[in-house]
């Protein structure tokens, strides 16, 4: 078997498992982002738009684009953490798999393929709902799906490589509390980075979610002005996220191999 066909087997096994567990992901993948869109975009938006008027776009559009990238991050981070730990420690399905012709790197590539598919589905659904809310136009919204998926894959791979080095599940909750939640709140999802105190802005600029959010916003809201997005060229965002994916893949294949075949 080739690497591709072995990886496809892993993706297939993920898909089979998903048929049983999808119910558990409905809330985090679909319902939560939509609730945030309704509460923050529509509800809070009515206050923001009648408030200072500092944003050149409706707050709903601003938040919807931010949430789209953030949803990619959430899904990618979740896929890269708990199921990976389960594969090694609790469900031990990774351990089972490598007693067959499947190798640790096949597991990484297979899960990557499956995540790509699932992220695309989740984000297309979100984009369509955001369009129904009136947050953006359908064309640009769909064009913004790939960058949001890319954001998710960046988090998936990097977090996978971190998870395989962890001893137990306790540190995974810490990751969400002290990395994912702050990123969600401070990387431009809900307000422009320019509102942050000056010394924090450079920190925000180097966070991965910032690049995802910027990219989604620049594509989904064509022609937005400088009060909403930065003037950083799009290729830099792309390069950042692609590098993240490449480094994440490289590290996670190495580290998973070390973990499973010490």
């Amino acid at each position: 078997m080739t690497v591709l066909s072995r990886s496809l087997r892993v993706a297939e096994s993920e898909a089979i498992a998903y048929r049983r567990t999808w119910r558990g992901t409905v809330i985090s993948s679909f319902i939560n982002p939509i609730l945030f869109l309704a509460a923050m975009g529509a509800g809070l938006g009515s206050l923001v738009d009648s408030g200072s008027g500092e944003l050149a776009v409706p707050y709903l559009a601003f938040v919807a684009t931010g949430l789209m990238a953030a949803s990619g991050m959430q899904n990618g981070a979740t896929d890269g953490s708990f199921p990976v730990m389960a594969g090694i420690l609790w469900r031990k399905n990774f351990i089972g798999a490598i007693s067959t012709p499947i190798s640790p790197s096949d597991i990484i590539y297979g899960r990557f393929l499956w995540a790509m598919l699932r992220l695309t589905f989740v984000l297309v659904v979100f984009a369509v709902i955001a369009v129904l809310f009136g947050a953006m136009e359908i064309g640009p919204a769909l064009l913004a799906v790939p960058p949001a998926v890319l954001t998710g894959l960046g988090f998936l791979t990097v977090i996978t490589s971190w998870t395989v080095t962890q001893k137990d599940g306790l540190s995974l909750s810490t990751l969400f509390r002290f990395a994912i939640v702050p990123l969600f709140l401070f990387s431009g999802t809900f307000f422009p980075i320019s509102q942050l105190p000056g010394f924090l802005q450079p920190v925000a600029y180097v966070t991965p979610l910032f690049h995802g959010v910027e990219l989604v916003r620049k594509i989904a809201l064509p022609g937005v002005d400088a009060s909403v997005v930065t003037s950083i060229p799009m290729w830099i965002h792309f390069a950042y996220l692609l590098t993240m994916v490449a480094v994440g893949l490289y590290l996670s294949t190495r580290l998973l191999d070390k973990r499973l075949r010490p």
Binding site: L44, L47, V48, G51, L55, L185, F186, F191, Q195, L196
Partner: peptide, 14 residues
């Protein structure tokens, strides 16, 4: 974290 986010960011918009 939510409070900081609201305090420094969203608050200025609202």
């Amino acid at each position: 974290f939510y409070l900081f986010s609201v305090g420094v960011g969203i608050g200025a918009l609202v």
